[in-house]
Design a binder for these strands. Structure first.
Length: 271
DNA sequence: ATGGGCACCTGGCTGC
DNA sequence: TGCAGCCAGGTGCCCA
């Protein structure tokens, strides 16, 4: 599910409800997430104050007095702020009970999400330490994309989805970024011109920031921390629009498969 | 170093 | 109605 805009939307929704609050308890109903939630985690968290929230790529960071929670939403996860007495529903896997009477409740039907706790600089955690620069950092620019694509024979879409090269862009925003930069998804990365690298860097940032502004994209089950869906779906140009007219030129949007994942593009707008 | 394929899971939809 | 098959916002790991 969640790509960078959905994770950032969740973080923003969470922040005012958790910053400064104390954790009363962590209750794990189903520890079998992508990685098993350690049995001793509740004991380590109880009583700690939450100092703030952050995000690295698609990982949500919840800073505590003595460490950091690293939350991943996987494909189908959501983290919501709810009154603690809200009845649980299917696939509610853990509750982070706060001293405000609210709970941070994690729901994830597919259980591809995860929960880690780390002491010290979270960016040194093995899951985060080898990630590419943030798309909104100055380092992520035309020159960066140009450099990393020079000797790559993989398709440009694969490069966008490779977290060691680009973070935050998943299946939806890869197709959308390529549409907006007018580049065909199957092009070899090394075939991009300087001009195209520049357009793509700009498109990635534009697409992600526009999506954040409207609360992300809800296709099926995604909701933000307050239970609100995201409205970027209405602004998608190609994703899940196969067979429909391109919103720019009217050509029928095509669908293809790359590494087992659907890609959408306009054969007329994209070269 | 790079790239490709697999694995992990549940649910919803399609078509026979 | 039932059921098999396919698809879905991710990504770490193993192998060539």
């Amino acid at each position: 599910m969640p790509e960078l805009p959905e994770v950032e939307t969740t973080r923003r929704g969470l922040e005012p409800h958790v910053a400064g609050r104390r954790i009363v308890a962590l209750t794990v109903h189903e520890p079998r997430l992508r990685w098993r939630v350690p049995d001793d985690l509740p004991a380590r968290l109880a009583g700690q104050r939450i100092t703030g929230t952050g995000r690295r790529a698609k990982y949500l960071l919840i800073a505590l007095e003595s460490g950091t929670l690293i939350v991943h939403l996987g494909m189908s996860g959501s983290l919501r702020v709810l009154p603690a007495d809200t009845p649980r529903i299917a696939h509610d896997h853990y509750d982070l009970l706060l001293d405000s009477g609210n709970t941070l409740r994690f729901n994830d039907p597919r259980r591809f999400g995860s929960l880690h706790y780390t002491i010290g600089d979270p960016h040194r955690h093995p899951l985060l330490s080898r990630l590419a620069p943030e798309p909104f950092d100055a380092e992520f620019d035309a020159d960066y994309l140009w450099r990393i694509t020079r000797r790559r024979r993989a398709s440009i879409k694969q490069v966008l989805m490779n977290s060691r090269l680009v973070v935050g862009v998943g299946n939806i925003y890869a197709s959308e970024s390529l549409f907006r930069s007018r580049i065909r998804p199957r092009r070899r990365a090394q075939s991009l011109s300087r001009e195209e690298a520049k357009r793509l860097a700009k498109a990635v940032r534009a697409v992600l920031s526009m999506a954040i502004e409207v609360g992300g994209t809800t296709l099926r089950d995604y909701v933000g921390a307050n239970g609100e869906p995201g409205y970027f779906r209405q602004k998608l140009y190609v994703y899940e629009r196969a067979g429909k007219a391109c919103r720019v030129c009217g050509t029928i949007v095509r669908q293809l498969t790359q590494q087992g994942r659907s890609t959408y593009y306009c054969s007329s707008c994209q070269k």
